[in-house]
Simulated assay, not measured.
Amino acid sequence: MSFDRAGLEQALSERREVARVVVAETSGSVPREVGAAMLVWPDGQAGTIGGGALEHDAAARARAGERGLRRVPLGPGLGQCCGGAVTLLTEYWTAADLGGIEGDLVVRPARTEGGAMPLAVRRLVADMRSGAAPPGPALVEGWMVEPVTQATRPLWIWGAGHVGRALVEVLAPLPDLAITWVDTAPERFPDTIPAPVTRLVAAEPTVAAAHAPVTAEHLILTYSHALDLALCDALLTRGFARAGLIGSDTKRARFRSRLRDLGHADAQISRIRCPIGQKTLGKHPQAIAVGVAAEILSAPMGTAEIRDTA
């Protein structure tokens, strides 16, 4: 987990102050890991630290103005079955606070009394400035240390219809994905788009495809079979890490034949997975999105290519 600056920026764009509750330490069986966080404001919240009684209690305390560190034994304290304990840090952020963050590491005192930065924390900061990989989120001698979210997997979603919207809704919260969402006109997109997602209006999507990184993953689900085919052709020419195409077994067979006629080899055509998702989950847009999300989470970059199911 890491510090989601984009999500906090979005929340602060609509309100003056937002409480942030982050899991600072854990012991035993707990619902979420260190670094899991949620944002809380008077009439809403975003993110999760595990749900249930822990989250309900933490949100209520944040709205009441509690701040600083608090250790919560989940069994005796909240009657939860996990049996472990979590230490929560509750703090309040404004746009000015967020603007003061520099670099890829967010470091601040977790205790209200503050104090000088400990030597261990100074060493972590110095190591990062020297090129070391960012540390994981941790509470270090009373200071909270969190790397800033850095999306490492470019994912292009082609189409803003029902399935495209369901995919963005499910995939946008995943911290590793840098999502570019493409369609042919602005009115095809919803009014509100999650902060980490980049909207790209492209009257000619195949031209945009030529500018996608060759390391990108693609999900093709436009309103037009002709456009789907043109995008498959463009991406096979451009190169990609993985690609998936919405459709049926019949669509896959027809596209295979047409892409072969366009000069693409079977081995390359087979790199485009069709259908996407998991058939056993059904064809509802959210069901497709859940199946695709499972595939993405279970196939990190660097693993074998996704082949079609023929």
Score class of each variant (00 low, 15 high):
148 V>H: 00
178 A>P: 07
8 L>Y: 01
149 T>C: 04
59 A>E: 11
270 S>P: 02
115 G>V: 15
191 D>R: 08
101 I>T: 09
269 I>K: 00
267 A>L: 11
184 T>K: 08
247 G>E: 10
188 R>L: 15
93 W>D: 07
270 S>M: 10
47 G>L: 01
145 V>K: 01
207 V>D: 14
98 L>I: 00
75 G>D: 10
21 V>G: 06
122 R>L: 10
174 L>A: 11
159 G>F: 11
95 A>H: 01
51 G>H: 05
176 D>C: 05
198 T>D: 09
175 P>E: 01
55 E>G: 05
27 S>I: 14
307 R>M: 11
143 W>T: 09
31 P>S: 07
235 L>D: 09
252 R>T: 02
64 A>R: 14
87 T>W: 06
155 L>R: 06
23 V>F: 03
247 G>Q: 08
272 I>G: 01
150 Q>L: 08
241 A>L: 13
100 G>K: 02
300 P>D: 15
1 M>L: 11
136 G>D: 14
163 V>S: 04
169 E>P: 04
120 A>N: 10
230 A>V: 02
238 R>C: 01
92 Y>G: 04
246 I>P: 09
278 Q>F: 03
20 R>T: 00
191 D>E: 15
187 E>L: 07
290 V>G: 04
40 V>Y: 00
143 W>Q: 05
30 V>I: 14
231 L>V: 11
271 R>M: 10
69 L>F: 09
10 Q>H: 10
15 R>A: 09
25 E>R: 07
200 L>T: 13
305 E>N: 14
124 L>V: 11
236 L>K: 00
78 L>H: 09
6 A>P: 00
239 G>A: 06
98 L>W: 00
28 G>E: 07
197 V>R: 03
94 T>F: 05
237 T>Q: 13
145 V>M: 05
140 V>K: 01
99 G>T: 05
300 P>S: 13
291 G>D: 02
305 E>G: 12
24 A>W: 06
217 E>H: 05
129 R>I: 03
199 R>F: 06
134 P>Y: 02
204 E>A: 14
264 H>C: 09
4 D>S: 02
273 R>S: 03
309 T>R: 10
92 Y>F: 12
42 P>I: 01
125 V>F: 08
181 W>M: 15
195 A>F: 00
246 I>A: 03
